[in-house]
Design a protein around this nucleic acid. Structure first.
Lengths: 348, 348
DNA sequence: CGGGTTTCTGTAAACGTTTCCGGCAGCTGG
DNA sequence: CCAGCTGCCGGAAACGTTTACAGAAACCCG
């Protein structure tokens, strides 16, 4: 029975005893530093025989880094965040970091708690995707105990890296596309207006409508929660009055769009012949339904990847030198046209 | 400028100096153990002024637990695993554990690495969802350095908690449903046959077909990868010959089913009038398409939740006493009927 | 063979906690 | 007034590593 600590796991001490050398030598051999041939062999044999695995916690304590990163987002149920997790995971994995996932359930206090918990040294850095940016967020970001990258739009004077989507331009892309394919009564199903994405999409919609010479008609704009069922309900409201029926519905995300599509189908309306539907995010859902959904890709994958890269870069540069200036980048939106907005004979 | 360690973060030592007490007292106060009123106040004030946050790494080293759990699954892109992550996350969060996410990309060596890495004490326990169970898996599970719960089917003699889906029964539910609603030529689009789910679904399909007095026709069975595009391709193959066209397609997951649906739509075939389609997993995708998809819920959420609970329970019971016997549970499948398999006038 | 250089090794400190233990002060009761 | 408590406190050890430092061994060369 090998001599081990109470925990049961072999430690560097068990190896030292078995190989009859000091713990310093064990550590050196295990880390590939110089040692006599004989010592190397004895240590390696002992380590193998005991099935030694270095204790990552002890190592972290010693050198002040955990090789863990945290990603905090509102809800893993939303495909957009899944895309981000996926991208971030693949970057961090390649760099030898583990990924800690934190679901904030879109609760502001939870987001703040995550920011403050950077101080507990549980992870070396944080990518956070807040649903809202309050003054408290700004304050917490300023005083963060470690490097942070925000996915979302920050006030300019907050000295933190950020990666944003251009949903204003994205919404405009969709509206112009609908206009160009002959649609004139364009409805808009948006998410909650008090979130950053919600506000931006609204802004994009308004400006693009104006650009196209179309009037912003309150009766054709619905605010609701993100989610398929919400989309269906919103569509019901828009379709209540047959006379003023829209010939296109632009939705603030794909889930809403699928909800709208469902409502249209169950009323016997055809997509795109009677009503065109466009979504946003170009998530895997866009290709799931029928007809396949035109959607504006806001670059979730790209943003996730880039956020992770910024964070890693910041971790690589020693804090002592002139600190890296905060960087902000914007992922360009991309319109992905599919069948749900095909022009109809009569329209085009 | 408060006196702090080189790292910059205040520690228990900084507080002790500022409050003019020993570090032992600081620790006691911070952990709510007894102390004189005066001491408590001084320590708490000093801690607040310095913005002290306890170092989780040091604490972990001391008491041998990290308050982190790991979940390893093949691919976060698959909605089934998203459901699991979500369920696990919510359980672990409630219990005060952080969640470490590990994507194995369905490569066996990666799964094994995760199992072995339990020894580095980075997390207190592991929920793993392997795509295959090899002898090496079994060996790694036997010698795991910490508690593990497997989501999937294990050989009976492996002493590890597991939570399994009953995809045999699940497939049978779907087939019987299709048969009862008048379908007779039932095709089957399955995933890779060398995975556990693939094999089980095949078995379920075969037995149910036999039960219903239908013949298993090789020409109506396609094996492919899981994924929407694979489903579409599979459907193309099944539909190539008009004469032998199936009147129902059962798919091993929702993505395949959506792919099949797409192929059917683009050939102008109607669902469910011409061909019924059923999927599996009842993921969020099932409600995304049109018509909404009949699907067999294999309880991903349930399994994730239960796996997490088993793990937590095992963590709570001290290892010294009689060890908990390994437990195995099976989530019952549930058929969710939607429009995609509605009986047609001529059939029913 | 001895002095200097090089290589290797062991001792000990450090990372930031928690906790055991001995001791001191204050109190109570005889 | 003292023995015995009780309640707090500080010193020190421990968790498992890495690493600075100093000493020992080996080697080279004159």
């Amino acid at each position: 029975m090998p001599r081990t600590q109470s925990g049961g796991q072999p430690t560097i001490v068990s190896i030292a005893e078995r190989a009859e050398v000091s713990i310093a030598s064990v550590s050196r051999v295990l880390n590939g530093l110089g040692a006599r041939r004989d010592t190397v062999e004895r240590v390696e044999r002992a380590a193998a025989e005991l099935g030694y695995v270095p204790n990552a916690v002890a190592r972290s304590l010693k050198d002040g880094r955990t090789r863990q990163l945290t990603f905090a987002m509102p809800d893993i149920g939303n495909p957009v965040y899944v895309a981000m997790v996926r991208a971030i995971q693949s970057v961090t994995k390649a760099a030898g970091y583990r990924l800690l996932l934190h679901s904030t359930d879109a609760v502001v206090d939870d987001e703040l708690a995550v920011l403050r918990s950077l101080g507990d040294r549980t992870s070396d850095g944080l990518v956070i995707c807040p649903i809202r940016i309050t003054d408290e967020h700004v304050e917490a970001l300023r005083t963060a105990a470690g490097p942070v990258v925000v996915i979302g739009s920050l006030p300019d004077d907050v000295p933190v890296d950020s990666v944003r989507a251009d949903s204003v331009a994205g919404a405009a892309l969709a509206v112009r596309h609908l206009h160009e394919t002959g649609r004139r009564r364009i409805a808009f199903v948006n998410g909650p207006p008090d979130t950053v994405p919600g506000r931006n999409r609204d802004e994009g919609f308004r400006t693009a409508m104006a650009e196209c010479g179309l009037v912003y008609d309150d009766a054709l704009v619905v605010h609701t929660d993100f989610g398929i069922d919400s989309g269906a309900e919103a569509a019901e409201r828009l379709l209540a009055d047959d006379a003023s029926r829209p010939d296109a519905v632009f939705c603030a995300n794909d889930q809403l769009a699928l909800g709208v599509a469902r409502a249209l189908h169950s009323r016997g309306l055809r997509i795109p012949e009677d009503v065109a539907v466009a979504g946003m995010d170009d998530s895997l859902l866009a290709q799931a339904g029928w007809p396949p959904l035109t959607s504006v890709d806001l670059g979730s994958t790209e943003r996730g990847r880039h956020a992770a890269e910024l964070l890693l870069e910041r971790l690589r540069t020693p804090d002592g030198t002139h600190p890296l200036a905060p960087r902000t980048s914007t992922a360009p939106p991309r319109l992905v046209v599919r069948a749900s907005t095909a022009p109809t004979a009569v329209n085009s």
